[in-house]
Design a protein around this nucleic acid. Structure first.
Length: 637
DNA sequence: TTGTGGTGT
């Protein structure tokens, strides 16, 4: 390990850390900064017996890095070195170096805004600009100043990032010194197309076969595409085309890679390639940051990505194919040069590259921020407009969040631009859930159906638990028919949860019923966690197993802004936005036409569809928000 | 009559 480039600058880093309260460390992955810098600080006693936090955007990273560092220090995980992620905390009173997800540190700041148990906080992978890291920037900056003002122990901050946006970070952190650590990336040759490619999928196929015919086997290829369907189509095309190639060429092993692919199939992409074969990994942006594949020599970059954007006027999240940023293009290119020099084929011209925006728009400017705002208020930040965001969300996005939270009764306006948490909002902020789902739990308390609501909310908090492979679609739908309900998908989900519980979490039960076992286990974990939070908050764990009507009424009280009304032409009208919407064909209510429903979410594809529905009585909607519905219905023609 | 980039509490 001592041959890592970081050891060459160890002394200089330590001196700089001693000198300045805030430092910025720039270094590529594989520079060793994440594993070594916390150890340097610990070994020279700079933490003064407080905790050293090192935050990561991803759970897996927090866990595996902690394990590696513990091994290097020759101690079991959980003693001097530990990790803390949702559902799993390995730390003990001995722990001094704590790897944690940034979301976890943010949660802790609700209990102590000054984060007093930490003497050093390292924000790692800052260039990824997740919502949580962005909010933490403001929280730790405030904590540092305020701790000084209140004569608490000094808080030392270290921001670690790849080579992007350096000036932006330095400026935000009052011109903190920037320290560079050499990476270990091998040289990469970049090729652009000479002409603009109108068909990036066709261009990707051509490039893959060109590499395949000209380059030695064993040199694997990574292709960046935008989504599952595209990847499966390209995979099939490569397999088909391979049949017409000369037999003398090496065999192509095609490996799709995307997050919703079952784990066992994902693993194929990481297996080493047999001699005389070549691996082609067809991946979404999961291979940009979340996973690393060894042995990649060629990267084929289509320059496209599927990304979310938020429309504050319609309150809609839209997922669409967009051009990547220049920073993303370099991140992708870097995937080629990890073990030896690599070659990158960019399927766009150099002029197009210079037209890409230099940096990816931070997530906080692309998504609905209701949850973030609720969290900031819970931390104790009263004036959101004055909060020191490194890049603030748009005014429209913030006011859209406030109007949603006001409607839900979570906040009230207490000044021209000031908002306060209500008692309800306080209760809601206890749960690490979408605000509407937190409210559903609170609504269940007076109706005495808390246990059922915990199950439902947990089911609604994961990606779909239904597993419907295209080839076995009819069988899957048929075997799951026993769970469906004319009261809607919410009741169906509760039925599935109950059957899964009765099977004692059986994997074979899931297999037989076309249910995703991995996601069901997450449902169990979430339920256990929020049930624990209820106990801590003295929420009575009441149960009403039979009466689904009372459960649906609570749902109506919490999700009334997601209500839709049947129109005479058979379509629905979303009452909040007045848009025409349809029942998604995957819903168990697809064949029926209930007069009023609430939905979990809208997805905008070929049409605007409501996904996950619950049949409601319009009276329940009025009960929940009389003024809102009166004005909404007045506007009707 | 259909489709889900990736994370996280």
């Amino acid at each position: 390990k001592t041959d890592l480039p970081i050891f060459a600058v160890r002394q200089r880093l330590i001196e700089e850390f001693k000198k300045s309260e805030t430092s910025i460390v720039i270094g590529e992955t594989a520079s060793g900064k994440t594993t070594q810098i916390p150890q340097f600080l610990y070994n020279c006693g700079l933490h003064k017996n407080g905790l050293i936090a090192c935050t990561q955007p991803r759970r897996v990273a927090a866990i595996t890095i902690a394990q590696r560092v513990a091994q290097e220090m020759g101690t079991p995980v959980g003693q001097e070195v530990g990790f803390c992620v949702r559902f799993e905390d390995s730390t003990s009173s001995q722990t001094r170096i704590k790897y944690m997800t940034d979301g976890m540190l943010l949660r802790e700041s609700i209990g102590d805004r000054l984060l007093k148990k930490y003497s050093i906080i390292i924000l790692d992978e800052a260039h990824e600009r997740t919502i949580q890291t962005d909010v933490l920037f403001g929280v730790v900056k405030y904590a540092q100043v305020q701790r000084k003002a209140e004569n608490h122990r000094k808080l030392r901050l270290i921001v670690m990032s790849a080579t992007m946006d350096v000036d932006h970070f330095a400026k935000y952190f009052s011109s903190a010194p920037v320290l560079y650590v050499e990476g270990r990336l091998h040289p990469i040759k970049i090729n652009y197309t000479r002409e603009i490619q109108s068909d990036y999928i066709g261009a990707a196929l051509t490039t893959v076969f060109q590499i395949h015919q000209e380059e030695p086997a064993q040199d694997d290829i990574l292709v960046f595409l935008t989504g599952q369907e595209e990847i499966e189509t390209v995979a099939q095309t490569i397999k088909d085309l391979q049949l017409s190639l000369p037999l003398s060429l090496p065999k192509l092993i095609v490996c799709p890679l995307y997050a919703s692919l079952p784990h066992s199939l994902q693993l194929r992409a990481f297996k080493s390639t047999p001699a005389d074969c070549r691996k082609v990994v067809l991946s979404t942006n999961i291979a940009e940051t979340s996973v690393t594949i060894r042995g990649i020599k060629f990267v084929v970059d289509t320059g496209k990505v599927k990304a979310k954007s938020f429309n504050a006027s319609t309150h809609l999240d839209i997922l669409s194919v967009q051009s990547i940023s220049q920073a993303q293009a370099w991140q992708r290119a870097g995937r080629a040069g990890r073990e030896r020099h690599g070659i990158v084929y960019r399927l766009y011209t150099e002029a197009q590259y210079f037209n890409f925006s230099p940096n990816t728009v931070p997530e906080i400017q692309r998504c609905n921020v209701s949850n973030t705002i609720l969290q900031l208020l819970a931390i104790g930040i009263k004036d959101i407009h004055a909060f020191d965001f490194i890049d603030p969300p748009s005014k429209e996005s913030i006011s859209s969040a406030f109007s949603e939270l006001t409607l839900l009764g979570a906040v009230v306006q207490s000044g021209s631009k000031l908002y306060e948490l209500t008692a309800l909002g306080q209760k809601m902020s206890v749960f690490p859930l979408d605000p509407k789902l937190s409210k559903a739990i609170v609504c269940a308390i007076p109706q005495n159906c808390v246990e059922e609501m915990l199950s439902l909310v947990s089911m609604l908090s994961v990606e779909s638990v239904l597993y419907t492979p295209q080839a076995k679609k009819d069988v899957a739908l048929d075997v799951r028919r026993k769970f469906t309900s004319n009261e809607g998908d919410f009741v169906m989900l509760l039925n599935i949860y109950r059957a899964f519980k009765q099977s004692k979490g059986s994997k074979s039960w899931c297999f037989e019923n076309y249910i995703n076992h991995r996601n069901m286990n997450v449902v169990f974990e979430i339920r256990k966690q929020i049930r624990g939070l209820c106990l801590k908050a003295n929420v009575p764990l009441t149960s009403n197993q039979r009466d689904m009507k009372v459960l649906r009424r609570c749902v109506a009280h919490a999700l009334f802004t997601n209500a839709a009304e049947l129109q005479t032409d058979g379509t629905y009208r979303a009452i909040d936005s007045n848009e025409t919407v349809l029942i998604h064909p995957s819903s168990c209510l697809f064949q029926s036409k209930p007069s009023y429903v609430v939905y979990r979410e809208l997805i905008h594809t070929s049409k605007c569809y409501m996904r996950d529905l619950c049949v409601v009585d319009p009276d329940w909607l009025y009960e929940a928000a009389p003024n809102y519905f009166q004005s909404k219905l007045k506007g009707r023609r």
